[in-house]
Amino acid sequence: MIPLSSYVILSAVLFFIGVVGVLMRRSIIVVLLSIELMLNAVNINFVAFSHYLESITGQVFVFFTLTVAAAEVAVGLALLIAIYRNRQTVNVEELDMMKW
């Protein structure tokens, strides 16, 4: 039996990697991947707690999250392609039009 803490630590590590990825990487694709990583870190938490608390709600939520994540990836990639077509770049540092 793997203790709950291991799952939580794993999830935290994954989440942290995701955060760092979002904050540090320059390619939008990697940023998107990192966001997925964060979402899945949360999913691991949900499943672990669901098992631990013997409540199905957590797992139900995971399905929601997965669905949303899928939708998000679809929209995100579509946007990304649109951005690339317009700007010929996927570098986030160059995509700073949303300022004054």
């Binding site: 979002v22 904050l23 540090m24 940023v31 986030v92 540092e93 995509l95 700073d96 949303m98 300022k99």
Partner: peptide, 17 residues
């Protein structure tokens, strides 16, 4: 205040974190 608005998504994410 607009100088805090760099337009870079990672700056916003950093502030959020």
């Amino acid at each position: 205040l607009k100088f805090f608005q760099t337009g870079r998504v990672q700056h916003y994410a950093m502030v959020m974190s």
